[in-house]
Write a protein that binds this DNA or RNA. Structure first.
Lengths: 235, 235
DNA sequence: TGTACATCAGTGAACGCGCGTTCACTGATGTAC
DNA sequence: TGTACATCAGTGAACGCGCGTTCACTGATGTAC
């Protein structure tokens, strides 16, 4: 039995403690927002002294970056696995997205909330963001493929038959076709590019307003609004 | 000449200094985000000592609340004046909204960004938020009115003629018709309710993603995407 | 116009706090022979 | 199995910092007679 891939007890303890630190960090964020995150407070809550945490994280910044990375990672996984489910379509993705967001609003806001001026995410996080878009593109392309001739989210404009490029979205799609860095190595056609983007932006509009509490007191059920938009996006 | 409505020099000085404090506060927020706002730092930047500011604001919290109020106020004014312009429609409102957001991203995020857990806006701010929705409802109703029989943002669903309630949005509109606390004293019909909400949520999705930098590196022009969505919303 | 008083802006010292982070050190755990 | 050493987790003290906020006080500005 080789030692390769086997964790020593010390290593196991390390990873376990790192995980617990992160858990406490999430609790703190949930209680006071990301700016209120404090290493000393985490240590105190774990019953240890402040400097002890420096065995596990180089400092506060590294911990926060790690949390952001984990947040992106979990979203990318949620989206990917939703997209991989048999018979999955954009509606399934939409539901997965909302479930992920509601599951932990502060995690959502760590990804999509107010940016900290001057902060730039490391490259590997940008790569995860690209992964998410790729999943959306996959699903959008699949849907566009099965609905060829009946652009699901586009009404045929005046004088535009199936396959026409003079519909109401023609201009946007033409622009996207020429500016698709983000989809450079993805075969999705322009209609799918537009569809993925619109899916993403509309749902985030709903989610960020809902999670920030801007619907409270208005009376309606945010889920109904979400379903309504999803219906428009997936027909 | 009565003294009524006339400011004494001292009063003028007071209001002027309050204004300058707020200006510096906005600069700080732009530089480091709202959590980084510090009374002492503002005082230092103005060449005075920290405690001096307590002549003008009861404390940090009051200053921040005041900034939030001003942000809401300026948005409400921007939306209202756009709606009041002759020949104005939802497209005009949409452009005004984007201009307002781009004018000062941090101000935008003070209103629509990550909520601070536990913070509750005072009632007068909630009232301004309602004012904004009322402007949207006005515009949406006007538009729905002029386009009666051709629900501008709704494709006629299968078997749904003009005036039908079996279209793709029927379910959502029915729900909104029964849950319209936010539009309790507004005569807008269900279709206008839906339209106003969708207008609001879609555009905020675009704006928050754009301002937070989630489009950077993707290649396309956010304005084109915004226009594309606006076209869909106003036809 | 001039004097006496009240109002109010701003200062400087101080308080208590919690923060991130470093450093030298103790004590336990693991490793090598 | 037992001893000698290396590794590493965690502590406690300390540093320097900036924060919000209070308080007693000075000095300038305005008001009343």
């Amino acid at each position: 039995m080789t030692a390769v891939g086997k964790e020593t007890p010390r290593e196991r303890y390390r990873t376990q403690l790192r995980a617990e630190i992160k858990e406490r960090a999430w609790e703190q964020i949930a209680a006071a927002g990301a700016p209120g995150l404090s290493l000393n407070a985490i240590a105190k809550q774990m019953g240890m002294s402040g400097p002890a945490l420096y065995r596990y994280f180089a400092g506060r910044d590294e911990l926060i970056t790690e949390l952001i990375r984990d947040a992106y990672r979990s979203l990318a996984d949620a989206v990917r696995s939703a997209a991989a489910a048999p018979g999955s379509d954009l509606a399934v993705l939409g539901h997965a997205l909302r479930a992920w967001a509601l599951d932990d609003p502060q995690r959502y806001f760590l990804v999509y909330g107010t940016p900290v001026p001057g902060y730039h995410a490391p490259d590997d996080i940008t790569a995860i963001a690209a992964e998410i878009m790729a999943s959306l593109l996959d699903a959008a392309q699949r849907m566009t493929g099965t609905a060829v001739g009946t652009p699901a989210d586009g009404r045929p404009g005046p004088g535009s038959g199936p396959g026409s490029d003079t519909g109401p979205d023609a201009r946007l799609e033409a622009h996207l076709a020429e500016h698709r860095q983000w989809a450079a190595d993805h075969p999705a056609p322009p209609a799918a590019l537009r569809r993925a983007l619109v899916f993403w932006t509309r749902l985030h509009g709903l989610l960020s307003l809902e999670l920030a509490g801007h619907f409270t007191g208005m009376g309606f059920d945010p889920a109904e609004l979400y379903e309504g938009e999803l219906r428009r996006l997936t027909r």
